[in-house]
Design a protein around this nucleic acid. Structure first.
Length: 569
RNA sequence: CGGGGUAUAGCUCAGCCUGGUAGAGCGCUACCUUCGGGAGGUAGAAGUCGUAGGUUCAAAUCCUGCUACCCCGACCA
């Protein structure tokens, strides 16, 4: 492509709307433009990237034996009522009403539609296994869309759904998708990790996520150095610390702590470590408020907490009035001593002694508190907190590390949740009806583009992995409009490269070289070739890879080799 | 959804407090000079100052409603 014909506008300044680097660079490089909150137009250069991602995903899905189809984006409410998700999926559903006042939604996901397809099409176990997939636009009415295409409301997703006769078949289909996904992210050229995950709203049993590693990622991943364990921090289990609880060494004392409400404030005021303070959180329960007790330096894990009996899901913190009624003090001074509501203790609190906690009295805390003396020792402790770096690997050896990741893929074993609800059955060999075992497998196509940039950029712009770069080479003539030699050589090279199937962005604009170099780096094209009188006099072009610090002079043949990715001697 | 903020040229913003002829930089058009890391000059195009109403001789500026967008949001007990 010739730059002059591409209507490409790059920006020097960072648009005010962009918060994270991928969003900023996508706007500056002219990949996307915003239409309204969380909804974007993919401009020609951005679309080229998107199409490459899609192509790789399709190739690997096809290789794994999946069948592409295309389901409607608009779905009738009745289907969603069959699975009760018309109400349960809640505000994420964009609801639409037609002229006959019938309800529809713009599909946020397609379990209902595919299960409807399955119950109509599938009659016999002989048709199994089958895995249908599509690449399609979804809409989820996020509370707060942000981060550009990383959390947009409208986005493109590859979603696949497998149907098997039994659990063993599902296991095989799931494993095939896990392999396919691994191949996809390897081919995309991204550093990623597969982690155990919570299955969340979609339902079902086993699930794993694929995360692109990036410091800006919204998710935290716990993993073992040995490589044997990786899980989303949401689900990574903590274990009770080994050893016995030390004997009390100090007497119980009530101390004034006026205005000190947070763990940090209390610890600082009393001159103790946050780990020596007990954190008591009051949350909504099914029969009145419930207290959750953690070590002061630990973080509550909402996913774990809301699964406890008697706790309301999704986890909801009690309001100030409820805290007042339950503890007798305003928020900030709650503690388990003498507390008249159900209490859950985190594992880590079980071995604490001589600790600090709220006195259930305003502006006061207790010090030298001990289980078995000042309050009953908990009958059992539970897993309430996020794992942290250095925690033991669950069920394994060694210690956990924490990395940040962007979730770009998720695979689930759904089981028969949807097939039972919607009556998707086949006859088995014995002529008996069996509910289909389902799996579902999603990849965020648009999110991958953003994640790739989050992981691969520098201060000058994007650094595309070669597999998804919008072009292979950025061709920069110097003095194109003034040097016939340069013009003829560049035109010839452009023609030759195009004929060889190399995707070229030929910067034929009459602008100074610095402008072209800056755009080449902003756009992140992997290879750059410069044609100049100076170089041509020596029979050479100037080559530089986007990741290189310096350029080098190369002959024509070597330049072509480099562009084709052949090894350089 | 709750809280906060913003809305002035394609982009980034100033002007508003203290009402009186709408500005800058970048970008865009033309010409001149320049030409290997986002050049300089001259001339120009481009804004009903989000929207509706109110106050006033006079509103981008003050007041009210509306809309859109952005940011923050239970780890606090």
């Amino acid at each position: 492509m010739r730059y002059s014909g591409y209507a490409l506008t790059t920006l020097k300044e960072i648009p005010a709307e962009a918060e994270i680097v991928s969003h900023q660079l996508m706007l500056r490089a002219g990949l996307i433009r915003r239409l309204t909150a969380g909804i974007f137009t993919w401009m020609p250069v951005g679309l080229r990237v998107l199409r490459k991602v899609e192509a790789i995903v399709r190739e690997e899905m096809d290789r794994a034996g999946a069948l592409e189809l295309l389901m409607p984006a608009v779905q009738p409410a009745e289907l969603w009522r069959e699975t009760s998700r018309w109400d349960e999926y809640g505000h994420l559903l964009l609801r639409i009403r037609d002229r006959h006042e019938r309800d529809y939604c713009f599909g946020p996901t397609h379990e209902e539609v595919i299960t409807d397809v399955a119950r109509r099409e599938l009659r016999s176990y002989k048709q199994l296994p089958v895995n249908w997939y599509q690449v399609q636009t979804k809409f989820r009415d996020e509370i707060r869309p942000r981060f550009g295409v990383m959390r947009s409301r409208e986005f493109i997703m590859k979603d696949a759904y497998s149907f098997d006769l039994d659990a063993a078949g599902l296991e095989a289909s799931y494993a095939a998708m896990r392999t396919a996904y691994t191949r996809i992210f390897e081919r995309l050229g991204l550093r990623f990790r597969v982690v155990d995950a919570d299955s969340g709203e979609i339902g079902g049993s086993r699930s794993q996520e694929f995360h692109v590693l990036a410091d800006s990622g919204e998710d935290a991943i716990a993993w073992s150095e040995s490589g044997g364990y990786a899980a989303n921090v949401e689900t990574a289990a903590t274990v009770p610390p080994p050893g016995e609880r030390p004997a009390p060494a100090r007497a119980l004392e009530r101390v004034p702590t006026p205005g000190a409400r947070t763990i940090a404030e209390v610890a600082a005021l009393l001159g103790v470590a946050p780990a020596a303070v007990l954190k008591t959180l009051i949350v909504a329960g099914t029969a009145g408020p419930v207290a959750l007790v953690l070590r002061g330096d630990h973080e509550l894990n909402a996913v774990k907490a809301q699964k406890l009996p008697g706790v309301v899901a999704p986890l909801t913190m009690a309001d100030a009035a409820t805290v007042q009624a339950a503890t007798g003090a305003e928020p900030g001074y709650a503690g388990p001593v003498g507390l008249g509501i159900p209490v859950y203790f985190d594992h880590a609190t079980g071995v604490m002694a001589d600790f600090v906690c709220g006195a259930n009295e305003e502006d006061a805390h207790l010090t030298g508190v001990n289980f078995g003396r000042d309050l009953p020792a908990p009958e059992r402790t539970v897993d309430l907190r996020n794992v942290g770096a250095g925690d033991p690997v669950p069920g394994g050896e060694g210690k956990l590390s924490i990395a940040r990741g962007i979730e770009v893929g998720h695979i689930f074993q759904l089981g028969t949740k949807y097939s039972r609800a919607m009556g998707a059955v086949v006859l088995d060999q014995d002529g008996r009806e069996r509910a289909l075992e389902m799996g579902c497998y999603g990849i965020g196509i648009t999110r991958i583009v953003g994640a790739a940039i989050e992981q691969n950029h520098d201060e000058n712009g994007i650094i595309w992995p070669e597999a998804i770069a919008p072009f292979d080479v950025y061709l920069v003539p110097i003095n194109l409009q003034r040097s016939e030699t340069v013009r003829d050589a560049t035109e010839a090279l452009y023609t030759e490269l195009c004929a060889a199937g190399v995707e070229v962005l030929y910067d034929d604009r009459d602008v100074r070289p610095g402008v072209k170099f800056a755009d080449a780096e902003l756009l992140g094209i992997p290879h750059r070739l410069v044609v100049s009188d100076r170089g041509l006099a020596a029979g050479e072009f100037e080559y530089r890879h986007r990741r290189d610090a310096e350029s080098r002079a190369v002959k024509r043949d070597r330049a072509l080799e480099l562009l084709r990715g052949k090894p350089v001697p």
